[in-house]
Design a protein around this nucleic acid. Sequence first.
DNA 1: AGTATTTGACCGTC
DNA 2: GACGGTCAAATACT
Length: 412
Amino acid sequence: MHVLAAHTAPAPLALLGAAAALDHDRRRRDSIQQLLGQGPTMDDVLSQIHEGFRLAEELMAELPATQNDPAYLAERCHGIVQAYAAAIRLIHPHHGGAHTSLPSPPPLGGGTAEGGNLQQLDLLRPLLSGAAPSAALFPHHQQHMIGRLLEASQFNNMPADMFAAGTSSGGPVRRQQASSSRSSPPVHQRQHRRRRESGDRTTILVPVQRTGNTDLPPDDGYTWRKYGQKDILGSRYPRSYYRCTHKNYYGCEAKKKVQRLDDDPFMYEVTYCGNHTCLTTTTPLLTLPASAAATSTATASMLTNSPTGSSAATAILAGQDLVMAAAEHPAPALSTAIQLGISWMPSGLVGPSATAGEGSSAQVVNVPAASSGRDAEYPVMDFADAMFNSGSSGGSGMDVIFPAAHHDRRDS
DNA sequence: AGTATTTGACCGTC
DNA sequence: GACGGTCAAATACT
């Protein structure tokens, strides 16, 4: 995958050839235009988005002089939000506006309407984190800005444990010193290793978590288990290798590589390999008793009312509106991540090899039906995911739910 | 006891 | 032979 050779690129946009970027742009526009049908043109949408960018840039430029004027800042922020909301309304006119269709989240940080509007910004996340097409649509600095807007709108208001759950951050604290005295087993005891997989890969750029420990890899809503780390030639930062935590339950073969960009330590390059079968498989390894489902539903309600429950999770767990909305507008795909309040889903939903120069416009809107169907029909599985994401290493939450099934699932 | 992380070594590819 | 991806023992942690 040629994207992986971009370590020395001066900017993420350099990940794409100019011709490929233009082609992505065109096909993506065409695809979205088809979705829009007789409605507003894609140019209208992009114009509105760019207006948001423009206002945001103005605000950033004015920040040094206006940072002590909260009323003014609020007004400018509101204008920015309105611009993006207008773009969303153009894309989803039948939503009837930014406030009416999607379930209203609880007030975030005391906000009211802004909370709802800011959540709308999340709909942009697939555009921005969804690999190449976004790079084709928006300049590098604008992608940065969107990332920061999104963080300001959602991440900073998310429960801290929501992030601790998604990645290795939820695991044990890094040990102080590792042993180096052990020796590897004899070669003949090693299992034969599989050839390097050459399946679909998607590379995206994700800004680092700005709050807390910024060394933590970005959370994408999935749960990953780190299985390796390598120093990469010519790269300042090591590359970490993760596989899906659900591998042993669902046989999920999804993997990802995470590496900081040399030229931008505040950005991670995340390469996803393989799709999450744990999202499309119902019960390959587990048998779910009806009582467990009932219990999980009840517990889901508790989570809904939990003070730490996210607004998005509340929306999903509490009703079907968003499920239906997601089915109609699959780009912000419905998945475990949304169940957990994280509304972007890079792997398998942004289309394979989005950076490979192949037409991705169709794939952008091609959400596996099994995914949303499974989420709608198997809430217990989502609860299992939630328990997986508890971050507890000693005694998995699955022990509580599926005690009989939870044994002998260690690797190899 | 069970699980996640670390890290040196192994293995396939180029 | 270099490099990247993976394995798996040792270890940390709950």
